[in-house]
């Protein structure tokens, strides 16, 4: 790797249609680190993730995205996935006829991965969902676990997790946390971890299960605060996002 950063974002400006959503945003993640983004609705959190992943609707007009020292700013979506970036979508589409098993197999990319698929599905408590159409009739929690199951098979070096705990009942949130910890190699000491994560969290619940090194607050398409994720969460809980915005103004 040419860079000390796994992911390096410089001055990123993104437009959807003719509307600028992100305005010159900077972010750096080293191997093995987990970062969390907080922010009110419409602040651009999901846009940031979709831009990093390379969804065509999210057009970069300024700035750059480097992955392992390689400029991927204009690389197609599928090539980024194959390089080692993965995403858990907040609201993935239903794809009728395409089974969960097919999706996990596509992520795994192994000739005969059926045993691994069964094992991973069992871990995600989705063994009974493998032969169902992907996301069809899944509950909120099942969708999140299915997204994480696919990522576990894909084993990306950077995982972009868009609100992994939203719509998940309290009983299942610990499982979600466990799956994320697996994905981000939390069982290893920090120096041995190679997989990093960028997590969007609305409620911060996930921090009770997943340790994160850095937290950010996004407002109006900019990162307005950076620091210890628990401190940031406590501030938001006590004083709301307005405090983050006014803090910037000071």
């Amino acid at each position: 790797m040419d860079s000390e950063y796994l992911l390096e974002i410089n001055g990123l400006t993104t437009r959807i249609d003719n509307r600028e959503i992100l305005h010159g945003l900077n972010l750096r993640i080293q191997p093995g680190e987990t970062h969390v983004i907080f922010g009110p609705n419409g602040s651009g959190k999901t846009t940031l993730m979709m831009t990093i992943m390379g969804f065509p609707k999210y057009r970069v007009t300024k700035g750059s995205i480097f992955f392992k020292g390689k400029d991927i700013t204009h690389l197609p979506l599928d090539e980024r996935a194959r390089l080692g970036i993965g995403i858990s979508l907040q609201r993935p589409p239903v794809v009728r006829g395409v089974k969960t098993r097919d999706m996990v197999a596509a992520c795994l990319k192994k000739e005969d991965g059926s045993e691994i698929i069964e094992k991973l599905a069992k871990k995600a408590n989705l063994a009974d969902f493998l032969d169902r159409d992907i996301n069809h009739g899944f509950s909120g929690g099942e969708i999140k676990r299915s997204e994480l199951l696919q990522l576990l098979a894909q084993a990306p070096e950077v995982s972009l997790l868009d609100e992994p705990e939203s719509g998940v009942d309290l009983e299942n949130i610990a499982l979600i946390g466990e799956l994320i910890n697996n994905l981000l190699q939390k069982i290893h000491p920090i120096r041995k971890r190679t997989h990093s994560g960028l997590i969007i969290s609305h409620t911060g619940h996930i921090l009770e299960y997943v340790n994160a090194r850095t937290g950010y607050v996004m407002c109006n398409g900019r990162i307005v605060c950076e620091g210890d994720p628990h401190d940031i969460l406590n501030t938001i809980k006590d004083k709301g996002y307005q405090e983050c915005v006014s803090c910037l103004r000071r």
Binding site: D78, A81, G86, R96, G97, A106
Partner: peptide, 29 residues
């Protein structure tokens, strides 16, 4: 074919052609 579905599969590393083929295969199943 819904573009959103093609992109979803591409985000898992399938090329556009592979994603389209998988969706059609699923559609006919």
């Amino acid at each position: 074919i819904a573009e959103e579905e093609v992109e979803y599969l591409m985000a898992r590393g399938l090329t556009r052609d592979e994603a389209t083929a998988a969706i059609i295969r699923g559609f006919l199943k």
